[in-house]
C-alpha cells in the first residue's frame, strides 16, 4: 500500500464539484457563437482588447464555430454492459489445437466423472501432468474452498451453494467485497467501449481476466518503451533555447539532436 506523498493535496469533493457545476451551467446557458474568451473570466480579464489591440482573436467580431454540438436524448435507452467471459470458464484449454485452429477445450467432466472428489481438500496438483503449471498461491485456500468435490464443472460458495464455472464472479465477490464494490462502481477492473451508455455499449473485464484464481497476484509486466522525451534530460542541460539532449541510441537518422519532442 502506498503512503500518501506530501504535496498531493487532498481535495474536498464538494469543492471540486461546486466549482465545475457553475462553470458548466454558465456554458449551458451561453449563446451559441459567443467568443470563447468571454466564457473564461480570467482569460478575458487578462487579454482585453485594450491590452493587445489587434492581436487577440475573437475581440474583432463574433465567432461562428458553435460552442456546443448536438445534444444526446436524455431519455435514450441505455446500451448494454456485458462482462467478458474468458474461455477458461467453459473447460480446460488443451495445448493441442482443433480443426478451427483454436485450442481444444475439454469439459472438466470429460475426465472427472465425479469419483475423485472425496479428498479434494487435501490434494495439490503442483507438478502433476494433467494440470501442469497450476500453482496455488491464494491466501490459505485449498482446492475444495472453491471447487466442488462431486462435480468439477462447478464451484461452490462458503455456504455450499453451487456456482457454475461461468459464474465465477459470484465466487470472487463473496470474499472480496471492497474490490467487487469498486468494480461495480466502475473504479476497479477497467472497461472498453462507451463512457456514455446512451450512445453505445460497454464491455467489462472479468476478475479472472486479470487475476488467475489460483495465483491472483497481478502479474509483473515489461513496460512499453518510454517516449524519447526531451524531458528526460531536464536538469542536465536544459538552460534556455537550443537545448542539447543526448542523442538516443535509436535516433540515428541524421537529424539534429533537437529532434526529440518535449
Amino acid at each position: 500500500m502506498i503512503s500518501v506523498p506530501g504535496s498531493l493535496a487532498c481535495t474536498d469533493f464538494a469543492c471540486t464539484l461546486n466549482r465545475i457545476l457553475p462553470v458548466a451551467c454558465r456554458h449551458r446557458d451561453a449563446n451559441i457563437g459567443r467568443a470563447p474568451c468571454s466564457g473564461i473570466p480570467l482569460l478575458s480579464a487578462l487579454l482585453t482588447c485594450a491590452l493587445l489591440p489587434g492581436l487577440v482573436h475573437g475581440c474583432n467580431g463574433p465567432d461562428v464555430r458553435t460552442e456546443w454540438g448536438e445534444s444526446v436524448d436524455e431519455d435514450a435507452p441505455l446500451h448494454e454492459v456485458t462482462i467478458h467471459q474468458p474461455d477458461s470458464l467453459t473447460g480446460l484449454r488443451a495445448s493441442t489445437t482443433g480443426p478451427d485452429g483454436n485450442p481444444v477445450s475439454l469439459r472438466c467432466a470429460t475426465c472427472h466423472d465425479g469419483s475423485p472428489g472425496a479428498d479434494l481438500a487435501r490434494r495439490r496438483v503442483e507438478g502433476d501432468r494433467m494440470h501442469a503449471g497450476l500453482t496455488m498461491e491464494h491466501g490459505e485456500l485449498q482446492c475444495a474452498s472453491c471447487h466442488s468435490g462431486d462435480s468439477l464443472d462447478q464451484l461452490h460458495l462458503a455456504s455450499g451453494e453451487p456456482v457454475e464455472l461461468v459464474d465465477a464472479f459470484t465466487l470472487c465477490a463473496q470474499c472480496h467485497g471492497p474490490q467487487t464494490r469498486d468494480y461495480n462502481a466502475g473504479s476497479h477492473g477497467g472497461m472498453n467501449g462507451y463512457w456514455d451508455l446512451r450512445r453505445g455499449p460497454r464491455v467489462r473485464n472479468h476478475c479472472i481476466d486479470c487475476h488467475d484464481p489460483h495465483q491472483p497476484r497481478y502479474p509483473d509486466l515489461v513496460p512499453m518503451p518510454a517516449p524519447r522525451d526531451r524531458f528526460l534530460h531536464r536538469g542536465r542541460s536544459d538552460s534556455a533555447h537550443g537545448t542539447h539532449s543526448e542523442p538516443t541510441p535509436s535516433s540515428n537518422d541524421g537529424h539534429s539532436t533537437d529532434g526529440g519532442n518535449r
Binding site: C10, L17, I20, A185, G186, S187, W195
Partner: peptide
C-alpha cells in the same frame, strides 16, 4: 490493463467519475 483509469461526465451523478470523487480519497 490494470483498470486504473476512470473517465466520464462530471454532471452525471451516476457516472463512474462522480462515484470516485464522492467515495474515494481524491488528490490533485
Amino acid at each position: 490493463p490494470t483498470g486504473a483509469r476512470v473517465f466520464g461526465n462530471l454532471l452525471d451523478p451516476n457516472s463512474e467519475i462522480r462515484r470516485v470523487l464522492e467515495t474515494k480519497r481524491v488528490y490533485v
